[in-house]
Amino acid sequence: MTDLETKIKQLIIESLDLEDMNVDDIDSQEALFVDGLGLDSIDALELGLAIKNEFNVTLEANSEDTKKHFYSVASLAEFVRANNP
Protein backbone atom coordinates (compact mmCIF):
# COMPACT_ATOMS: atom_id res chain seq x y z
CA MET A 1 0.00 0.00 0.00
CA THR A 2 1.45 3.38 -0.99
CA ASP A 3 1.40 6.41 1.30
CA LEU A 4 -1.01 8.12 -1.05
CA GLU A 5 -3.45 5.18 -0.86
CA THR A 6 -3.29 5.27 2.94
CA LYS A 7 -3.98 9.00 2.86
CA ILE A 8 -6.99 8.47 0.58
CA LYS A 9 -8.32 5.75 2.86
CA GLN A 10 -8.03 8.06 5.85
CA LEU A 11 -9.83 10.74 3.87
CA ILE A 12 -12.65 8.29 3.02
CA ILE A 13 -13.07 7.28 6.66
CA GLU A 14 -13.06 10.86 7.96
CA SER A 15 -15.14 12.56 5.30
CA LEU A 16 -17.79 9.82 5.17
CA ASP A 17 -18.05 9.27 8.95
CA LEU A 18 -17.12 5.59 8.74
CA GLU A 19 -16.45 5.61 12.48
CA ASP A 20 -16.11 1.87 12.97
CA MET A 21 -13.53 1.42 10.21
CA ASN A 22 -9.77 1.78 9.94
CA VAL A 23 -7.48 1.90 6.90
CA ASP A 24 -6.81 -1.84 7.01
CA ASP A 25 -10.50 -2.57 6.46
CA ILE A 26 -10.43 -0.97 3.02
CA ASP A 27 -8.90 -2.98 0.16
CA SER A 28 -7.15 -0.69 -2.36
CA GLN A 29 -8.40 -2.75 -5.30
CA GLU A 30 -11.95 -3.27 -4.06
CA ALA A 31 -14.93 -1.36 -5.51
CA LEU A 32 -15.83 1.61 -3.33
CA PHE A 33 -19.45 1.85 -4.43
CA VAL A 34 -22.41 -0.51 -4.23
CA ASP A 35 -20.90 -4.02 -4.16
CA GLY A 36 -17.61 -3.36 -2.42
CA LEU A 37 -17.43 -0.93 0.45
CA GLY A 38 -21.11 -0.09 -0.09
CA LEU A 39 -20.85 3.66 -0.57
CA ASP A 40 -23.65 5.52 -2.34
CA SER A 41 -24.15 8.57 -4.56
CA ILE A 42 -24.14 11.04 -1.65
CA ASP A 43 -20.78 9.59 -0.60
CA ALA A 44 -19.48 10.12 -4.14
CA LEU A 45 -20.24 13.85 -3.92
CA GLU A 46 -18.79 14.12 -0.42
CA LEU A 47 -15.64 12.21 -1.37
CA GLY A 48 -15.25 14.33 -4.52
CA LEU A 49 -15.25 17.46 -2.36
CA ALA A 50 -12.78 15.97 0.12
CA ILE A 51 -10.40 14.90 -2.68
CA LYS A 52 -10.65 18.34 -4.26
CA ASN A 53 -9.89 20.10 -0.97
CA GLU A 54 -7.06 17.76 0.01
CA PHE A 55 -5.21 17.36 -3.30
CA ASN A 56 -6.33 20.43 -5.21
CA VAL A 57 -7.56 18.41 -8.17
CA THR A 58 -10.88 18.85 -9.95
CA LEU A 59 -13.20 15.99 -10.75
CA GLU A 60 -15.86 16.53 -13.35
CA ALA A 61 -19.34 15.41 -12.39
CA ASN A 62 -21.15 13.00 -14.71
CA SER A 63 -18.16 12.11 -16.84
CA GLU A 64 -17.34 8.49 -17.64
CA ASP A 65 -13.72 9.13 -16.68
CA THR A 66 -14.79 10.24 -13.21
CA LYS A 67 -16.61 6.96 -12.71
CA LYS A 68 -13.40 5.10 -13.56
CA HIS A 69 -11.32 7.24 -11.20
CA PHE A 70 -13.77 6.58 -8.39
CA TYR A 71 -13.80 2.81 -8.83
CA SER A 72 -11.32 2.02 -6.08
CA VAL A 73 -8.71 3.56 -3.78
CA ALA A 74 -6.02 2.44 -6.26
CA SER A 75 -7.72 4.18 -9.20
CA LEU A 76 -8.26 7.34 -7.16
CA ALA A 77 -4.57 7.34 -6.15
CA GLU A 78 -3.57 6.96 -9.80
CA PHE A 79 -5.79 9.90 -10.74
CA VAL A 80 -4.41 12.13 -7.98
CA ARG A 81 -0.82 11.22 -8.90
CA ALA A 82 -1.44 12.05 -12.57
CA ASN A 83 -3.06 15.41 -11.82
CA ASN A 84 -1.06 16.60 -8.84
CA PRO A 85 2.55 15.62 -9.45
Binding site: I42, D43, L45, E46, L49, K52, N53
Partner: peptide, 10 residues
Protein backbone atom coordinates in the same frame (compact mmCIF):
# COMPACT_ATOMS: atom_id res chain seq x y z
CA UNK B 1 -15.68 30.43 0.98
CA UNK B 2 -15.16 26.71 1.52
CA UNK B 3 -16.92 24.01 -0.49
CA UNK B 4 -20.19 22.97 1.16
CA UNK B 5 -20.61 19.39 2.32
CA UNK B 6 -23.21 17.77 0.02
CA UNK B 7 -24.20 15.36 2.81
CA UNK B 8 -24.73 18.16 5.31
CA UNK B 9 -26.71 20.12 2.77
CA UNK B 10 -28.95 17.15 1.95
Amino acid sequence: QEGLSPTNFG
